Simulated assay, not measured.
Amino acid sequence: MISVTIKKIGVVAQGIGNWQEATALLQSEADYQGGELPPLKPSMLKPNERRRTTRTIKIALQAAEEALQDLTGTETLASVFSSSEGDLDIIDQICLALTEEGRPVSPTQFHNSVHNAPAGYWSIGAGSRQGSSSLGGLNGSFAAGLMEAAVQAVVERVPVLLVCYDQPPPELLQPFMPIGEPFSIAMLLTAESESGIARLNLSTVPDGEESRMSKPALETLRLSAPSARSLPILQAIAQSHAANITLTYLPGLNLQSELLPC
């Protein structure tokens, strides 16, 4: 079993601009209503760097920025970035460019196409030279990122920033990875059992039923993006109650998350 403390959280989704708004929704009797995606303007990058980024990078950085708000020493943080498919808009644009005469692939598009582009921009903005991992695990991407970040926090005895994010793909790619809504979740994790938002005890269990949301629209949101599989954990934190939550992880394995409010 791996045990970590969640220190801070950042959330971005349609109709949800931050963790405070997510908390209000998850505490409410009302169901999720959706809405517009809030403006994505992460301030950690200089304007010329921000102009080179994409929607996928911005939604990841915006959640990360919220999770690190008012925190000093971000240059000492390790990080784990997890996404089911990365930046499919960029992949689509590059593939289309390769069909054109002269194959005019933009250098900016090319360097944004790598899976660790959001992690790279975060390292620049935060001034961090610590280790960073970027991974993908289809529908298990949140659980995979959570386990990776938790193991690093415990083994290396360093605080770790976890960011899991998804964007709907272009129409041509939608049948291959049907992500319905943009979603990004960031958590600052530490191995220390000091004060925080909640304590998580993580272990693997045989494949079985995953935890679901009781309200229909929230359940639809949970299924709309792999990063939104975090919603059962977020709901337990928002409602300040202990919970045992099962997350989709690897083939044949789920991730069991025992959450204890601090």
Rank of each mutant, 00 (worst) to 15 (best):
Met1Trp: 11
Ser3Gly: 12
Val4Thr: 10
Val4Phe: 01
Lys7Gln: 14
Lys7Val: 12
Lys8Pro: 06
Gly10Ser: 07
Val11Cys: 08
Gly15Tyr: 03
Gly15Asp: 07
Trp19Ile: 01
Leu25Glu: 11
Glu29Asn: 15
Glu29Lys: 14
Gly34His: 04
Gly35Asp: 07
Gly35Trp: 03
Leu37Ala: 04
Pro38Leu: 10
Pro38Gly: 13
Lys41Cys: 14
Lys41Ile: 13
Lys41Asp: 15
Pro42Thr: 00
Pro42Cys: 08
Pro42Asp: 04
Ser43Asp: 13
Ser43Glu: 15
Leu45Ser: 03
Asn48Thr: 14
Asn48Asp: 14
Arg50Cys: 02
Arg51Ser: 09
Arg52Gln: 01
Thr54Tyr: 09
Lys58Leu: 07
Lys58Asn: 12
Ala60His: 01
Gln62Glu: 12
Ala63Glu: 00
Ala64Asn: 01
Glu65Gln: 11
Leu68Met: 05
Gln69Val: 05
Asp70Phe: 04
Thr72Trp: 03
Ser83Thr: 01
Glu85Cys: 08
Glu85Ser: 09
Gly86Lys: 03
Gly86Phe: 04
Asp87Pro: 03
Asp87Tyr: 11
Leu88Ser: 04
Ile94Ala: 10
Cys95Asn: 14
Leu98Cys: 07
Glu100Trp: 00
Glu101Met: 00
Glu101Ile: 01
Arg103Glu: 14
Pro104Ser: 01
Gln109Glu: 13
Gln109Phe: 07
His111Glu: 08
Val114Phe: 09
Asn116Ile: 02
Ala117His: 03
Ala117Tyr: 00
Ala119Asp: 08
Ala119Glu: 06
Gly120Val: 03
Tyr121Asp: 08
Ile124Asn: 03
Ile124Asp: 07
Gln130Glu: 15
Gly131Leu: 00
Ser133Leu: 13
Ser134Met: 10
Gly140Asp: 07
Ser141Lys: 00
Gly145Arg: 03
Glu148Asn: 07
Glu148Thr: 04
Val151Gly: 12
Ala153Met: 02
Val154Glu: 11
Glu156Met: 13
Pro159Val: 08
Pro159Gly: 13
Pro159Tyr: 09
Val160Cys: 02
Leu161Glu: 00
Asp166Ile: 03
Gln167Ser: 14
Gln167Met: 14
Pro168Ser: 09
Pro169Ile: 11
Glu171Asp: 08
Leu172Ser: 12
Met177Asn: 15
Pro178Ser: 01
Ser184Leu: 02
Ile185Phe: 08
Ile185His: 06
Ala186Ser: 10
Leu188Phe: 07
Leu189Gly: 03
Thr190Tyr: 10
Thr190Ala: 15
Thr190Asn: 13
Thr190Ser: 15
Ala191Ser: 13
Glu192Gln: 14
Glu192Lys: 13
Ser193Met: 13
Gly196Tyr: 08
Ile197Tyr: 09
Ala198Arg: 04
Leu200Gly: 08
Asn201Met: 07
Asn201Phe: 09
Leu202Asn: 10
Pro206Phe: 01
Ser211Leu: 08
Met213Lys: 11
Pro216Ile: 00
Leu218His: 07
Leu223Arg: 15
Leu223Pro: 02
Pro226Trp: 12
Arg229Asn: 11
Ile233Met: 15
Ile233Leu: 15
Ile233Lys: 11
Gln235Pro: 10
Gln235Asn: 13
Ala238Gln: 00
Ala242Cys: 10
Ala243Leu: 02
Asn244Pro: 12
Thr246Lys: 14
Leu247Gln: 00
Tyr249Met: 02
Leu250Gln: 15
Leu250Asn: 09
Leu250Phe: 06
Gly252Ser: 07
Leu253Ser: 05
Asn254Met: 10
Gln256Ile: 10
Ser257Glu: 01
Leu259Trp: 06
Pro261Glu: 06
Pro261Cys: 06
Cys262Ile: 09
Cys262Val: 12
